[in-house]
Design a binder for these strands. Structure first.
Length: 128
DNA sequence: TAATTGACCGATC
DNA sequence: AGATCGGCCAATT
């Protein structure tokens, strides 16, 4: 039952990159409201076999019916990765601000709205 | 089949 | 602070 090559594990199933994509979806789905995560962090949390660039691709491939909180994923600079002024940019920024995420000069404070910031808030309360 | 693209990242200048 | 560069690797052209 050697696959003699690549993929086609069962019938028409794609390579295990597909399962990594699913892992990415699960990670993103698990991002708490009002928090953000960088593409790099999502890639790392989803396990080995992927890279930050692949995360963006996974998000684009995600079915709309899944209602994935894709807007909680931003780049390592704390900025939205859509072209400034584009429709996607505005939608993402609007959704995040609606959740309490603050933008200063078009970028968020990762120390405050990242997972570390979320933990700090749980420990220290709103006084951070 | 080869070349290009991309919701990125880190180092470097 | 902002711009550039190489690496990453599946999907698209």
């Amino acid at each position: 039952m050697q696959t003699t090559g690549s993929s086609a594990t069962s019938s028409d199933e794609k390579p295990d990159f597909n399962s990594w994509v699913v892992a990415v979806w699960q990670v993103v789905q698990d991002i708490p409201r009002g928090c953000v995560l960088t593409y790099g962090e999502v890639a790392r949390l989803a396990g080995s076999g992927g890279s930050p660039r692949r995360v963006s691709q996974a998000l684009r491939q995600a079915p709309t019916g899944m209602k994935l909180p894709w807007h909680r994923v931003i780049n390592s600079q704390g900025k939205i990765s859509f072209p400034a002024g584009s429709q996607g940019y505005r939608q993402q920024k609007t959704r995040l601000e609606k959740e309490g995420v603050v933008f200063l000069n078009g970028r968020t404070n990762l120390q405050q709205f990242g997972y570390s910031g979320a933990i700090d808030r749980l420990l220290w309360g709103e006084s951070v």
